[in-house]
Design a protein around this nucleic acid. Sequence first.
RNA 1: GCCGACGUAGCUCAGCCGGUAGAGCAGCUGAUUCGUAAUCAGCAGGCCAGCGGUUCGAAUCCGCUCGUCGGCUCCA
Length: 638
Amino acid sequence: MINITLPDGNIKSFENSPTGQEIARSISEGLARDTVAVKVNGDTLDVYLPIDHDAEIRLITTKDPEALEIMRHSAAHLMAHAICRVYKDAHLTIGPVVEDGFYYDIDMEPVSEEDFSKIEAEMKKLVKEKLPIRRKVITKKEALDFYKDEPFKTEMIQDLTDGTISFYEQGDFTDLCRGPHVPHTGFIKSFKLTKVSGAYWRADPNRPQLQRIYGTAFFDKKDLKEYLHFLEEAKKRNHRKLGEALDLFSFHDEAPGMPFFHARGMEIWNALLAYWREEHRAAGYVESKTPIILNRALWEKSGHWENYRENMYVTKIDEEEYSIKPMNCPGGMLLYASRPHSYRDLPLRQAEIGLVHRHELSGVLSGLFRVRAFHQDDAHIFMTPDQIEAEILGVLQLTERIYGTFGLGFHLELSTRPEKSIGTDEQWEMATEGLRSALELYGQEYKINEGDGAFYGPKIDIHIQDALKRTWQCGTVQLDMSLPERFDLAYIGSDNQRHRPIMIHRVIYGSIERFFGILLEHFAGKFPLWLAPVQVILLPINDDLVPYARELSEKFTQLALRCEVDHRTESLNRKIREAQLQNIPLILTVGAKEKEKGTLSVRTLDGNVRHGLDHESFFNRVFDHIAKRKIELEIFAE
RNA sequence: GCCGACGUAGCUCAGCCGGUAGAGCAGCUGAUUCGUAAUCAGCAGGCCAGCGGUUCGAAUCCGCUCGUCGGCUCCA
């Protein structure tokens, strides 16, 4: 007799060891149909495997997020199955589930997206056949025999240390796999192959390069459609396209990975920084500026020469070696060390909008998101050990405030000591604990990334979430106990003795270039009024009204609004269309009526048009919207 | 850096198996003077990313270089 406890506390008894399938069927036929796997005392099991002991179970149905992962894993197998049929000499390696789907790394002839349709066609055939997917436990020796002509699988099996080795079979296809899987291929209804790229075996550039084929799968056709729609939407918002269309920035072959910001882009840039300075001043920061070319001796002292050299641009001046700075910190150290400090001066919050250059691999460059020259909204905070918590907490609170202004949510991740690092164990221990306790104090949940810290210290990474729910790492807070040491930084304590200050590096926008790109996609090019490069455009209805429009424009400009007049001899409709496509938040048409009555007709980006606004109520609303840095496109809502 | 795809007018893109470059939008000129998302007509614009090769002949085929995109890796 086997007793099975269900999540609701009910206990069902079975004569023989029941399978998940049988348990589901004992409740209802429909449930049995939708059950993908079963969770037995925390382990996930295939539905057709018998449960031979009393257990607490939970059925995983197609509604569960876990089911999607299981099915996508099965979809990876399905794709591998199809590929092995189409490409005879394909050698499989690994095929995991990833965030939006799955991939499989396969040693085979290079494929392109044009080949997807024939693979997908083969996959569809296999789905129709509803091939049962069955687990088979075998010995290591059997596994090695089976894969004697498969070097990658052989290597994987040899690396397996924890007991059981299982195969999954579907029709004429067998794959080494831990499982679980959906019961048969018919569960994998809506899928699509999405992209292909090269990927090294074991992520090692010295090992063979494989074909990594990506795909995604859903239980419901509607979900797949929705996902594809999301991809379309993301494509439409692509900041490279918008940057070109809105005349914000450009890239040129003469400076790969180094953006040129146009006049309109600079308006946004300057508004971002003005806001940043306002917040930082209020939070007790002072601003500094350090040079971008510094002597090699400095980089040797800071440890960059040893640890970061491959990313640094080096140049020779008067027979001396110099490097263009990839980080601002060593300069910041010199600045701190340039005069003595008292404990009364601490914490010293020394900010710098620093231009850094990093020689990134050519293949990783990507619009504003990944560049070789960028500005960091950096700050180095020097403090006494008992100020650590409060300072980090302060940074987190400032970050929350600033991201909130843009309507961006965020989550936190703590990264610990990496393999390649400087400093002692004690230093790392203390630094990591400092960050951890500040996080606890802040109270928001956080994730831990072991070994992901910078070479000079542990860090808290702040990941924002944009309007399309995509996440981006922007802010980071890094505790550094090594640089103050290397630069022999000191402050005089109340005991009149020299003490070593603790330092943190932190950024909030991160890279201003990248943050700019993220905002561009987040707002889909429709920047809120306070950020819009052109805030007001005046559209005279005919040429006679151009002088009056200019008069108004003059007034607006005096009031510090960024304003333009479209004085072209074009139809009103065309001017409106173009202003709308340029995402100008306040589109004012100027005709005889407005001139006579002294009123304004305003179209906002939500498509609303209001006539007969008097100047005073217009300015009240507009300046209120700007002062509060509101992000709504509707400006004159009741 | 590696793998794959791509690079034609300011932009978006055509250009079949090699015969000497084409459209729409933008620009310019002229006409139109317009009330909430494209008025009409004409004109001009290209060393087909660069270099080399194959060929009687190359945007088209081949090689190299540069750049862009998607990944790998890395990271703000």
